[in-house]
Design a binder for these strands. Structure first.
Length: 328
DNA sequence: CTCCAGGGATGAT
DNA sequence: ATCATCCATGGA
């Protein structure tokens, strides 16, 4: 066990890990336990310093004998690994200064000081976000944990069990039914198919890093279970494409209610185009700030939408005829 | 266009 | 405690 300290200015560990970009870190004491790639890590923040402990023990495949492999020697030294994962090299002050100046963005920027977009391993990021579709954060965390416990490698740090995320070839050799046991539902087939493509080298995630944003998005959307939103998440969190602007329900609400309050007819495509132009070169960062701020302070949509729709149908109303019933 | 798949957390009642 | 709603992909 190795204890290290890493300088970390302009950084808030808790906000970063709880902002819906990564789903496997667990609060333990004053810090968090998780994994950076295959390394089990405990990390806590003391002012402008991160204190991290990392397990350097032998690998062991859970529930399955596997020939003893030599410990993979990481090229990065441990402080560099932490520094790189948490993107402590991103010029956060510059990035935040590039956000548009408007009341919504200002509030989000103030609320999320120290939030960074971290660098996630590509496969782990892609697989996790395939599992995220039509799921809420709490669910995604459960799925991530189930996949890791069932198919990942068990590690330990600070007396805590930590499981690494299973590589594609490990998931490729399982079955849809096994994946469904992890709570994936219909996403199991998507994840399995994608894992097989990666395992068989039909898809080479690392080589995709050379592609342009548009080409990368196109390739990602070609994978089953990957639509525009998931593709943008993977671009942002796995490929450091800082301009990628994922639009989920929270962001869509913010855009509609705060930026288009008098225009309920603006389309989703219209919102996406607006966001790409308005939030600038670091749009992905702006999106993460808006997302976290909205989730922490905003409220979910009030109930009754379905009931109203049913009521409208029952009244024999057609599309749009019932607009006057809609809230606001 | 609509509906559905799966399912634990969440909020309203 | 019960119950409807949430979530944002892909296929019918």
């Amino acid at each position: 066990m190795k204890l290290i300290e890493v300088p970390a200015v302009d950084f808030d560990l808790a906000i970063t890990l709880n902002s819906g970009q990564v789903f496997h870190w667990e609060k333990v004491g004053t810090g968090f336990c998780g994994a950076i790639g295959d390394r089990a890590v405990y990390v806590e923040q003391c002012g402008n310093v991160l204190r991290a402990k990392m397990e350097v023990g032998a690998l062991r495949r859970r529930g399955q004998q596997r020939e003893e492999m030599p410990r993979p020697t990481t090229t990065a030294t441990t402080p560099e690994l932490v520094h790189h994962y948490f993107a402590l090299d991103h010029p956060l002050a510059e990035i935040c200064a590039s956000f548009p100046r408007d009341p919504i963005m200002n509030a989000a920027r103030d609320f999320c000081q120290g939030l960074r977009i971290i660098r996630q391993p590509r496969w782990e990021c892609l697989a996790t976000f395939i599992c995220s579709s039509m799921k809420q954060v709490a669910h995604i965390r459960q799925i991530s944990r189930a996949l890791r416990q069932r198919f990942g490698e068990k590690k330990e740090v600070c007396g805590q069990e930590v499981f690494s995320f299973p590589p594609a070839d490990r998931l490729a050799e399982t079955t849809e039914n096994e994946l469904r046991k992890c709570g994936l539902g219909y996403r199991a087939e998507n994840l399995l198919t994608t894992a097989k493509r990666v395992a068989l080298r039909k898809v080479t995630l690392d080589s995709w890093n050379a592609l342009s944003d548009a080409e990368l998005r196109e390739q990602l959307c070609d994978l089953p279970g990957v639509g525009a939103k998931v593709a943008n998440c993977v671009m942002l969190f796995g490929y450091e494409r800082i301009k990628a602007f994922p639009i989920d329900i929270w962001i869509e609400r913010v855009l509609r209610e705060k930026y288009f309050p008098r225009n309920r007819k603006v389309t989703s495509a219209g919102l996406a185009e607006f966001a790409a132009n308005y939030f600038g070169a670091h749009g992905g960062y702006a999106q993460q700030y808006l997302f976290h701020h909205a989730r922490m302070t905003g409220k979910r949509r009030r109930q009754g939408r379905i009931r109203r729709c049913r009521a409208r149908r029952a009244l024999g109303m057609t599309q749009g005829a019932g607009c006057f019933i809609l809230p606001l």
